[in-house]
Amino acid sequence: MAIKITDECINCDACVAECPNNAIYEPDSEWSYSDETSLSGEVTTPDGRTVDADAENEPISDEFYFIVTDKCTECKGFHDEPQCASVCPVDCCVPDEDHVETEEELLSKKVWMHGE
């Protein structure tokens, strides 16, 4: 499953540099699928939606750091554990029960964003 940042976040930004998918954004920041990925132009997401990878999307939170679920792979294919959770000083990077994915789905998402 993807990781989410709870409202316990102290906005320290320790997690941002650790994310290999650039899935973590500052509060009130627009985001795009193409940020630090190989995606560009019109793409089909792993769940079948067509999106403009270069489009700026509305911030998910204006109060604390947030993780874009579609870009989070729990660091599968990069690390043994989610790096955001391992560096978070307040343990606010937790599994997102609303976005449960198998290891195969997470690895497929990694390939989708970065190639093989």
Rank of each mutant, 00 (worst) to 15 (best):
I3Q: 15
A14M: 10
K71M: 13
L39W: 02
N21Y: 10
I24W: 01
S61N: 05
A55V: 03
L107W: 02
A23C: 14
I10W: 06
T44A: 08
I60G: 04
K76Y: 13
T102V: 11
Y65I: 03
E58S: 11
E63H: 07
V111E: 13
D70P: 05
S29P: 00
N22T: 14
E18Q: 15
R49C: 02
A2F: 12
I24L: 09
E116D: 13
D52G: 01
W112F: 15
T102F: 07
G77F: 01
C12Q: 04
E26R: 14
T69R: 01
K4S: 08
K109H: 09
V43Q: 14
D70V: 15
W31M: 02
D91T: 13
V16K: 14
T50V: 14
I5A: 14
C15N: 10
D13C: 11
E74S: 12
P95M: 07
P27G: 02
H114F: 15
E26M: 06
G115S: 05
E74L: 02
C15V: 07
V94M: 03
C72Y: 04
D98C: 07
I24M: 00
E63M: 07
T73A: 06
E103F: 05
E104M: 06
V51A: 08
T6F: 05
S108T: 05
